[in-house]
Design a binder for these strands. Structure first.
Length: 516
RNA sequence: CGGGGAGUGGCGCAGCCUGGUAGCGCACCUGUUUUGGGUACAGGGGGUCGCAAGUUCGAAUCUUGUCUCCCCGACCA
């Protein structure tokens, strides 16, 4: 087997964390900003986020949810109204205390003591409390329900340890907030959002997930139930890629979200909240990336096809003819559809060698790269590479196809759809192969994770769903093995054995994993 | 926030121990060459060494402080 010269210097199997960072740099997605925990998202990375936004926003609106925008600053007092909520977020809030700077007399600017705020403002870590205020104003009658809102925004959580896309101090997300008349309605909205996230992850990001309910200790602060989608990364760790919460009447009580029923009775609303963030991009990297860089699923690729004419820069007439040939190809491809949308195609005529640009787009993970040289033009063909089938294993070189220009254009939609499903299938197969089921005891769990397997994946165990101190003890035990409970998968087999923590009869199955 | 490591042209690094105003590879620019796959050769531009203060005749090199990043932990989308 020939030696393959990969486009990255780091390999996943050698140092997954270093590889992850190299992908972000090599694909030109984002960079450090110099501000603690905050990143600059560059066009390719932001373009992926815009695609996710577009597709998810359509799903949100299709469910009858309307977009709004709420302030970035939230009065401190709002957080004091819900005890668990403030406890959960208090340690990671950025607080604005002054509204003006003055010169300190030594050439430095300092907050003006005379401009101290009466009440500090918190930079939102999440918006339940301020949206709750609005809901309290907007909801009077049963006719105002359900109230279905969403906002696309940035939030700030002062995390101790940050990693690009996975955990940044500031991140971009959407947060849906809904109010309902009954518990049933609110719970079904919680599940609807969860299912929406599953579809978004699996269909748009080609990232298979396990949906399920979080255990009590992993709940969102102030929630009655928290549900999540969990994705398996290539190192076998779990990434919580989205959450949906049933908040009961906790926030309604705090903010006074009440309505008068048809019978004339005053009642508290049942509320929900749900969100996904730029973390999903980290999930895409660790799900689809390979030793040559990122592989972007076509549905969320800013450009699905990149055409690179091999311009010589010597013979203007020849270059113009080649550019025209490529532009016709661009037009033909742009008229095609894939995954229900017009194909996004870029003709890159910037000066520079096509061969060098090819590797730039390989690292970026553009699904299809088409190179066209003068000889291709004469023969009426193009040289096409699928990013998901980059290498010819026999030659160790890039795996070119040379269809005619017309065939290439006509087949582009089907090829993009095939790449989309191939990426999902690969990821799903890897996930399924790395979940070990029916692990019967905590010792077996420990053995599984202390074995030789470099990436031991997840294990499924049964438990008695302990609460309170018993749950804390179970969590402690798991922590010794750096494990966490991911969720109680929806649709799992019923329990039929003993709880690995208590030995008593189990009531359900849970997934354990190391996590991001 | 605790433990460890690191910040030197766009990227990756050497120099620092034994102070004397900066070097390599890639990238970039120019020219020649090559021309179907990450071409080769020659020439060239760009950094005052994270930031601040201190020691010194002199600091990338020593001291102190500070900011940022990476790894391990605690916390979390």
């Amino acid at each position: 087997m020939p030696e393959i010269r990969h486009a990255l210097t780091k390999k996943r199997e050698d140092d997954f964390a270093a590889w992850y960072q190299e992908v972000i740099t090599a694909a030109d997605m984002a960079e450090e900003s110099g501000v603690r925990g905050c990143m600059v998202i560059k066009p390719w990375g932001y373009g992926i986020w815009e695609r996710i936004q577009r597709l998810l926003d359509d799903r949100i609106k299709a469910a009858g949810v309307q977009n709004c925008y709420f302030p970035i600053f939230i009065p401190l007092a709002n957080f004091e109204r819900e005890a668990e909520h403030v406890e959960g977020f208090a340690k990671e809030m950025a607080v604005v205390t002054h509204h003006r700077l003055i010169n300190d007399g030594y050439g430095k600017l300092i907050p003006d003591p005379a401009a101290k705020l009466e009440e500090p403002l918190v930079v939102r870590p999440t918006s339940e409390t301020i949206i709750g205020d609005a809901m309290a104003r907007w909801v009077q009658s049963w006719r105002d329900l359900p109230l279905l809102t969403n906002q696309w925004a940035n939030v700030v959580r002062w995390e101790m340890r940050t990693r690009m896309f996975l955990r940044t101090s500031e991140f971009l997300w959407q947060e849906g907030h809904t109010a309902h008349a009954t518990r049933d309605e609110a719970e079904s909205e919680t599940k609807r959002a969860l299912e929406m996230y599953r579809a978004c992850a699996e269909e748009d990001l080609a990232m298979p997930v396990i949906t399920g309910e979080k255990p009590e200790n992993e709940r969102f602060p102030g929630a009655v139930e928290t549900w999540s989608i969990e994705a398996m990364m290539q190192d076998g760790k779990a990434l919580q890629a989205g959450t949906s919460h049933y908040l009961g009447t906790n926030f309604s009580e705090a903010a006074g979200i009440k309505y008068q029923s048809q019978e004339g009775q005053e009642a508290l609303c049942h509320t929900t909240s749900w969100g996904v963030s730029t973390r999903m991009i980290g999930g895409v990297i660790m799900t689809h990336g390979d030793d040559d860089g990122l592989r972007v699923p076509p549905a969320i690729a800013p450009q699905q096809v990149v055409i690179l004419p091999m311009l010589r820069g010597k013979d203007e007439e020849a270059d113009a003819a080649l550019t025209a040939y490529c532009d016709e190809l661009r037009g033909m491809i742009a008229a095609q559809t894939a995954l229900g949308e017009r194909v996004r195609v870029l003709l890159d005529t910037r000066p520079g060698k096509a061969a060098a640009k090819r590797w730039d787009y390989v690292r970026k993970g553009a699904p299809i790269v088409i190179e066209v040289g003068s000889r291709d033009m004469e023969a009426g063909v193009v040289s096409l590479i699928r990013r998901d089938q980059l290498w010819n294993m026999e030659t160790g070189k890039a795996n070119y196809q040379t269809p005619s220009r017309e065939e290439a254009a006509a087949g582009i939609g089907a090829m993009l759809e095939d790449i989309q499903s191939a990426l999902f299938s690969q990821a799903a197969a890897r996930r399924d192969a790395n979940i070990t089921r029916n692990v019967g005891s905590i010792d077996d769990v420990a053995a599984h994770y202390s074995g030789d397997a470099k990436y031991p994946g997840w294990v499924e165990v049964q438990w008695a769903k302990p609460t309170g101190a018993a749950l804390e003890k179970a969590v402690e035990t798991l922590k010794e093995h750096k494990l966490t409970i991911r969720n109680v998968p929806i649709g799992a087999e019923p329990a039929d054995g003993a709880c690995i923590f208590t030995g008593g009869p189990a009531v359900e199955r849970i997934l354990l994993a190391r996590s991001y």
